[in-house]
Each structure stands twice: as structure tokens, then as C-alpha cells.
Design a protein around this nucleic acid. Structure first.
Length: 549
RNA sequence: GCCCAUGUGGUGUAAUGGAUAGCACUACGGAUUUCGGCUCCGUCAGUCAGGGUUCGAGUCCUUGCAUGGGUACCA
């Protein structure tokens, strides 16, 4: 499709040099409006000083289109130019799909470019919460999308192993440990309440018995509890990520930023630039009203510890220095303000932030059919991502989190996700794939003579066949569009169309028919191409392609 | 209060500023039921409200209303 656009653009620009801007194309919703439509006459009529329809007529009269590519050109409505692409063009794409297989849909749009996607980055203080799933699954799909358009992608996890939260973790584990010995031992107000803390404490007690009791004032002991909690939690987190098939290339330790002096350097930089000042024992960053801020922010507390903003800024500066063409962050909307502060700081420290893009997704609510599921972060009733995956499976988890645009609130129906029926959208899609595999198994067993490398695409003339071919041919454009906007849900919308068009074709046309060998061979190839596109699409959104269900 | 995001049939949602607003669930009516339990076709019904920009607005601007999130020397 991209090739056809280029072809038409080239012809128009050669014949009518006065058109100096981009020529944009649409795929019309209405089938009678052709395969591609352009509003160029509407857009340019004013400049040309002509009526849109007259201008459109002039354009198509000056140009001779190759009938083998463009079979018909029409002017319609207020001045749209509708192009009808020759059916042979679509039939030829069938070969392209079959030859490229798992590569079909990839482009070199961003060849030689590098991207860094940082996501998950959950603190090792607790297991991943079900709500984290949205960011996690989105990131997985977006990383895949970027790769499909040619980026070399680094998947990175910012590991928060410093700061106040880790002390709280140590205190919490210690308190649970002490409670094994003295049940009355007080639990810290701001501590982590989850069951998993008790598990860590039990493990420690098994190993060390009561040898650590009352020794929390000792730095070494405190460090021991901290490390034990951190390692335990991070193991759980990584295990959950493994279940989803997510692997990071880099785990970036926050503590490195302290050890290598980058945080200290950044403080100096702010002071030199006179945008940081001391007040009430803390260090403040001056926030400009013109940038949308209404008050200054603390970057170093009076206790001497930086707030989370400062290491975050240093971290982003580190990423900028590593020279990526694209730096991508994904956050929930609960961090919608803080990332702006971080980027502001990076900019004020003198760095170019134009390569940094931030994706913000809205929150998730979970329900079981009509019952809502409470998602308390503090109490023991938390619903963990691990439980969700165990309940509905990794594929449904990945699919449901990615199927809606990031900017809309997500109502996650656990009951629906678990259902093995056509009501469940992931089931519908995977079923289409399994069904095609079924056709091939059937062919292997009973219609071996119909399996052949040779086939005649021109036999595919049925409306349903052409329609399916047209949909399949759009796949590379859909991937590009999805990647450009970082919106993997578009792939799902598209795959639904593929499955739906396939089923319509399948319902009306028998694939395996010994009486019609030529037709069967061609239809098998069409089914194979559909299978390839479905599988490639599944790969991007991060779900498996089951051959049987 | 201020900042950000979002308001689309009964429900959940889709739509680079384009022509008749798409899909799924639900309900009802049909078709296949000889490649897999399925699947296909049809019917009912929708852009929060008011202004504005544009040849053309669900989409852009503005006001109002509603929902979610943020507004810490927590992350």
C-alpha cells in the first residue's frame, strides 16, 4: 500500500509541480469510494484558485495511471479523488506474505536508530500489583512494535534500591521477625503490611533463629534485613515478569547514581545555575510559572536525603548521555505530574529532552462480571499480578491490558477474560488461528494432493477472497501507524478485522475440495497468508498462537 | 481552588479534520450446521450540553457539567 501511495504521489508531483506539500491518503470506510482516497484537491483548491471538483478533474486528466496498478480513478463528493487499485496488485501481495513469513509487516523506517524503553521499574518493596499489569503489558507490546519498525531496542528496568522506602522495608521485615519471638512487638505505622513480609521474616527466623533479636540498631543487621527483603521481593517480581515473557536488557541501579557522584554533580549544576536554593534546611528547585508550575519543589530533604525527583533527573540525564534516538517512559496517570517535574529539571540542567517521550496510561478497575474487585494497596486483600495471571492465563492478561487505548480508563472484567467462548475477544482471535491450523491438519491427512508450492493467484476472484486479501495487505501500514503513535491496541482492532474477514470467507467458500484442485490450492495459500498475519500480529501484542485449543 | 486525562447505542469501546460513526456483548430474527465445539447474515439503538474555527468536527478552540488521577521535606 505504501508503494501505491508513493507511486501516485510521484505522478501527481511530476505533472503538477505547484503542489508542493505532502499528499495524504486515506483508506475509505465506504467500499464504493475505492481503495485509497486523497483530499489533495480540497486542500489545494484555495491556493490554486479553483473549485475543488474542477481542480480534481484537472489532476486526473493530466495523469495517465498504469491500469495494472490503478484500475479506476473517480472524483466524488466535494472533490475527493478515489483510486481503485487493480485486484492483481492484491493478488501479488499474497506471494509477498508467503515469502516473507514471520518478517511480513516489518519495515526499516527506523533502521539504524536506537530506542530505550524503561518500564515496570517497580520498587523491590512488594510484589507487583494487578494494576501494574497495564503498564507492564503495554511496554512489552510497544517494545515489540518499535523493533518491527527497525529500532534497536534496549529494555530497561530502573531499580530503586535506595532511599527511604528501603528502610521502611527493613523495618517491616524486622518487626515481623520480632513478632515471631514477641507477638506484641509493634509494627511501624508506615510499614508494608502484606503477607509476603511475614514469609520473609519466617525464612530469616528459620535460618538465624533469634540471633538477630534486638539488634536492629546495628547497621549490619539493618542491612541484612533490608537485603533479605529486597532479594525476596525482586525474585517474586522477576518471576511474575517471566510468566509474561518479559525480559529486560539492563537493570539500572538507583544506588549507582549515588556511588558514581552523578547526583552530587547534578546538585552542583543546579546551584551553579542558581535555580536551587536552601530554605528551612532543605534544598529547593525553582519551578517556573511559565512552565506550568505553581510552587517550588524540594529536591533534598532537611534530613539530607534527596527526594525521588533528584535521582530520577540524574537517571534521565544518564540515559540522554547514552545517546539513544528515542527514550521512552511509561507511567500511570498517578505519576502524571511528577514526570513533568523530572523533565523540567533535566532541561534546566542543560540537556536536550526532545528525544524523551512519555506515555501516560489511565488507571484500571477490576471486576468479576458485575462485582467490582477491591484493590486496596495497604491491606492484605491486595490483588497481585501473579494471581491475575494464574487466574486467567498470560495471554488473556497481556491481551486485555493492551486492547484499549492507554488514555482511557480500563474496566478489566476478570470473568470475561477467563471465559472460553466467543464472548472473549482473545479467544475469538486465537480460535481463528487454530481453525486455520485445523484446515492444514485436515489437508495433510486427507487432501495431500492439494498441498503444493505452485498455485495460481488469479483464480481468487470471489468478493470475500479479494476483501480478505485487501485486509491482509494493510498489515505493514497498521504496524507503522501503531508504532508511530505507540498504540498497540490498533493492532488488535486490525487483527479483529482480519479474523472477521477470514471467517466470512471461510463461511462462504469451501477451502478443501478435491473436485476443485486449483481453487483449493489457491485458497489454502490465502489461508496460510492469513495465518502468517495473525501470528505476526499476535507476536507484536505479545500473545501466543495456539495451533489447537 | 489549580493542573492533567477522559465523556460515543443498554454495556464495554474504535475511528491520521473527511463522504452513510466501526466492532464486540446483550436482545430479537434468519443462514450454515459435510474444514473444529463454531461461524456467517440481518434488525433495534449512540458522539455530555452550549458557543466558535473549517468546504467538512466524535476529532481542533472556548465555556459549562460529569468521571478518574495529581496537587507532600512518599515513590
Amino acid at each position: 500500500m505504501t508503494d501505491v501511495k508513493k507511486y501516485i504521489t510521484g505522478l501527481i508531483k511530476n505533472s503538477l509541480p505547484e503542489i508542493d506539500s505532502e499528499i495524504s491518503f486515506d483508506i475509505p470506510k465506504e467500499i464504493n469510494h475505492g481503495d485509497l482516497t486523497s483530499n489533495i484537491a480540497l486542500v489545494f483548491s484555495k491556493k490554486a484558485g479553483k473549485k475543488p471538483r474542477d481542480f480534481a478533474t484537472e489532476i486526473i486528466n493530466t495523469i495517465n495511471f498504469d491500469k495494472n496498478i490503478i484500475s479506476k480513478v473517480e472524483i466524488a463528493g466535494p472533490g475527493f479523488i478515489n483510486f481503485f487499485i487493480a485486484e492483481d496488485f492484491y493478488r501479488n501481495i499474497l506471494n509477498e506474505i508467503l515469502n516473507n513469513k514471520s518478517e511480513f509487516g516489518k519495515s526499516d523506517l527506523n533502521k539504524d536508530k536506537t530506542a530505550n524503553l524503561e518500564w515496570v521499574s517497580a520498587n523491590p518493596t512488594k510484589p507487583l500489583h494487578a494494576g501494574h499489569g497495564r503498564q507492564i503489558c503495554l511496554g512489552k507490546a510497544i517494545a515489540n512494535l518499535l523493533e518491527w519498525t527497525g529500532y534497536k531496542v534496549t529494555r530497561e528496568y530502573y531499580y530503586n534500591d535506595a532511599g527511604n522506602q528501603m528502610n521502611k522495608l527493613a523495618e517491616s521485615v524486622y518487626a515481623r521477625y520480632m513478632q515471631i519471638i514477641y507477638p506484641e512487638f509493634p509494627f511501624p505505622d508506615e510499614g508494608y503490611h502484606g503477607e509476603y513480609i511475614k514469609n520473609i521474616a519466617s525464612l530469616i527466623y528459620e535460618m538465624r533463629k533469634d540471633s538477630l533479636k534486638d539488634k536492629f540498631d546495628d547497621e549490619e543487621t539493618k542491612e541484612f534485613f533490608k537485603t533479605a527483603g529486597e532479594n525476596y521481593n525482586f525474585k517474586i517480581i522477576r518471576n511474575t515478569l517471566n510468566k509474561l515473557g518479559i525480559h529486560h536488557d539492563i537493570f539500572f541501579n538507583e544506588s549507582d547514581l549515588y556511588n558514581n557522584g552523578e547526583i552530587k554533580n547534578l546538585i552542583e549544576e543546579f546551584k551553579n545555575r542558581k535555580i536551587a536554593y536552601e530554605k528551612e534546611g532543605a534544598l529547593w528547585l525553582r519551578m517556573e510559572e511559565s512552565e506550568g508550575f505553581d510552587k517550588d519543589k524540594v529536591i533534598v530533604k532537611s534530613s539530607g536525603e534527596p527526594t525521588y525527583r533528584l535521582p530520577d533527573m540524574a537517571y534521565h540525564i544518564d540515559k540522554i548521555k547514552r545517546g539513544y534516538d528515542l527514550i521512552l517512559d511509561i507511567f500511570g496517570s498517578d505519576h502524571g505530574d511528577t514526570y513533568k517535574e523530572v523533565l523540567y529539571g533535566v532541561k534546566k540542567a542543560g540537556y536536550d529532552i526532545s528525544n524523551i517521550k512519555v506515555i501516560i496510561h489511565q488507571m484500571v478497575t477490576f471486576k468479576m462480571g458485575n462485582e467490582s474487585v477491591k484493590m486496596s494497596g495497604r491491606s492484605d486483600t491486595s490483588y497481585y499480578l501473579d494471581e491475575l495471571i494464574d487466574d486467567i492465563g498470560a495471554d488473556a492478561t497481556q491481551f486485555f491490558f493492551v486492547m484499549r487505548g492507554a488514555n482511557t480508563h480500563l474496566d478489566f472484567d476478570i470473568k470475561l477474560a477467563k471465559e472460553q467462548s466467543d464472548k472473549n475477544p482473545v479467544y475469538y482471535l486465537q480460535y481463528a488461528y487454530a481453525r486455520i491450523c485445523g484446515i492444514f491438519r485436515n489437508a495433510e491427512n486427507e487432501f495431500k494432493e492439494l498441498i503444493s508450492d505452485e498455485f495460481n493467484p488469479s483464480i481468487l476472484t470471489d468478493e470475500n477472497e479479494i476483501n480478505l486479501l485487501k485486509t491482509l495487505s494493510r498489515f505493514p501500514d497498521e504496524v507503522e501507524d501503531s508504532a508511530r503513535t505507540f498504540e498497540p491496541h490498533k493492532i488488535i482492532t486490525y487483527l479483529n478485522k482480519v479474523a472477521s474477514d477470514f471467517h466470512t470467507f471461510y463461511h462462504n467458500n469451501r477451502v478443501l475440495d478435491a473436485e476443485q484442485p486449483e481453487q483449493s490450492k489457491a485458497r489454502l495459500k490465502l489461508a496460510d497468508a492469513t495465518r502468517i498475519v495473525l501470528k505476526n500480529g499476535f507476536g507484536i501484542i505479545g500473545i501466543t498462537a495456539p495451533e489447537r485449543m
